[in-house]
């Protein structure tokens, strides 16, 4: 457990119910250890607590009970220690409407104090890589949904953070761009020794990309935790797929 890069130790998260009566348990006693350099896919039906786990790793919400450590530290309590170390691709693009595409990509670098020229150059490189050359100066309202999501991916990746957290990063993309980005994402994570957690709805995406698949079941418990062998045979993949499907269709 001690060599884990991200570790959940009996982590529970409860929210006050909207009607004021008692607490709602969004994450229930989860223990999970993610090794350095691992690419992990988080699957589960909507409302099963994926985003809540994600927000806890990101340090945006605090566990109600249990211990969560990222790189040995508390992401909520040691919030600022993680500057430049965590990058997030949110489920919705969350672009700032008053900034152009390239300025949106630059925001993370700005927060890190990267000098203007280098900032511009890195942002430009990422936009080009994501097929957005020529749209640098467009405002978000002038971009399509898929393009906006790509800008938000560029914004996260441009910071070159060690931990990548992605909430359904490829779901808003068309087939071809999605496929290209998935491959690119896998390469990026593996070649640069990053640790990544991504949430997805797609079983195929999870099997194609991840080293490991964690399936959550309501009420927010781990129902399955399986490794995906690098050179899995088609039968192994099919077997994995049907096991995940069985849980998700319960």
């Amino acid at each position: 457990m001690s060599d884990a890069e991200i570790s959940f130790d009996h982590v529970t998260k409860e929210f006050p119910k909207p009607d004021g009566g008692g607490l709602f348990r969004a994450v229930d006693d989860v223990s999970l250890a993610i090794a350095p350099g691992e690419l992990i896919a988080l699957l589960g039906k909507t409302g099963c607590g994926k985003s809540t786990m994600f927000n806890m790793i990101a340090g945006l919400t605090e566990p109600s009970a249990g211990v969560l450590r990222v790189a040995g530290r508390d992401p909520f309590g040691d919030f600022n220690w993680f500057r430049g170390k965590i990058a997030i691709v949110f489920q919705n693009d969350r672009l700032l409407p008053w900034r152009t595409a390239i300025e949106n990509v630059e925001i993370g670098l700005e927060m890190l104090g990267v000098p203007t020229a280098e900032r511009r150059q890195r942002a430009q490189a990422w936009l080009t890589r994501l097929g957005l050359a020529g749209h640098e100066r467009d405002y978000p309202h002038a971009l399509s949904g898929g393009m906006r999501q790509r800008v938000s991916i560029a914004r996260a990746f441009a910071t070159d953070a060690k931990f990548l957290l992605c909430d359904e990063p490829f779901s808003a993309l068309d087939e071809i761009t999605g496929q290209r980005l998935r491959e690119e994402f896998g390469t990026l994570v593996r070649e640069n020794g990053k640790t990544a957690v991504f949430i997805t709805h797609s079983i195929n995406e999870a099997i194609q990309l991840a080293d490991r698949i964690v399936v959550l079941r309501r009420p927010a418990r781990i129902a399955m935790d399986a490794r995906v062998p690098r050179n899995a045979s088609p039968t192994e993949r099919d077997d994995l797929r049907s096991r995940v499907e069985a849980i998700l269709s319960e």
């Binding site: 945006l60 919030f79 993680f82 990058a87 949110f90 919705n92 969350r94 910071t159």
Partner: peptide, 11 residues
């Protein structure tokens, strides 16, 4: 959500 996006960069 924009606030949390910017916050995630620890400004």
């Amino acid at each position: 959500d924009l606030f949390e996006m910017v916050l995630s960069f620890r400004p």
